[in-house]
């Protein structure tokens, strides 16, 4: 066919992007609360000591990675807590009230344009849930191998966080999954409802630590 020759010529046809019908039903379900500690389960040791402050080793930090977050740290100061800086991997922790603003800064200034994954982890020992956004970049070649982990914490008895869907559209299904699996309610997310679990699921979110698989 005649079109076969200009396959690789780069004529990106633009299409009026159809509006994704998503805003139709706003969240009506109340956030899944963690069951109060009635279920006896041995609390696992929290991996809170992963968040080792590397302040003393700052001289050894990879320079390029450090440069990425320098503008963040200089702008937001103490609210950005650097958890670790390793080659190709950076992790920062921010308070939940600032996360939308900081995420916007990361997208517009630092060049990370999409979320690869959103993971929520339950820490019963410290009584909170950590939500990590693994952000990557398609547009900037020098960042293509880097992952910026943007994490925030929320109280596990009232797990509620602002959604980043307005900043990174790619978090939509991941946040919805985190809602049903760990029970974190995302404000401003169009649909905090069932996704992977059965519609008649009537138990606590299964990735909470007090949820035990039967017989194990």
């Amino acid at each position: 066919m005649s079109k076969s020759d200009d396959r690789s010529l780069g004529n990106i046809k633009s299409k009026p992007s159809p509006t994704v019908a998503s805003n139709k039903d706003l969240p009506s379900i109340s956030p899944k609360q963690g069951e109060t500690g009635s279920i006896a389960s041995p609390p696992k040791p929290s991996s809170d000591n992963t968040s080792v402050q590397l302040k003393s080793e700052k001289a050894d930090l990879p320079q390029f990675e450090k440069g990425i977050i320098d503008s963040l740290v200089s702008k937001y100061g103490d609210s950005v807590k650097i958890i670790y800086v390793r080659p190709l991997r950076i992790k920062i922790e921010v308070p939940s009230k600032d996360i939308v603003e900081i995420a916007r800064h990361i997208r517009d200034e630092s060049g990370f344009d999409h979320a690869e994954s959103v993971s929520a982890t339950d820490y019963p020992k410290t009584g909170d849930i950590e939500v990590i956004y693994h952000l990557g970049s398609y547009t900037r070649d020098d960042l293509s191998s880097h992952i910026l982990s943007l994490s925030t914490r929320t109280d596990r008895n009232n797990a509620r966080l602002p959604s980043l869907i307005g900043i990174f559209k790619s978090v939509e299904y991941h946040e919805r999954e985190s809602f049903e699996m760990v029970g974190v309610y995302f404000d401003n997310h169009p649909r905090n409802d069932r996704f992977l679990l059965p519609e008649d699921w009537a138990d606590i979110p299964p990735l909470r630590k007090e949820f035990r698989i039967k017989g194990r």
């Binding site: 344009d113 979320a115 398609y138 990174f168």
Partner: peptide, 11 residues
């Protein structure tokens, strides 16, 4: 058509 911009946005 999935444009380049949309592909990046949708991740």
């Amino acid at each position: 058509i999935l444009t380049k911009e949309d592909a990046i946005k949708l991740g």
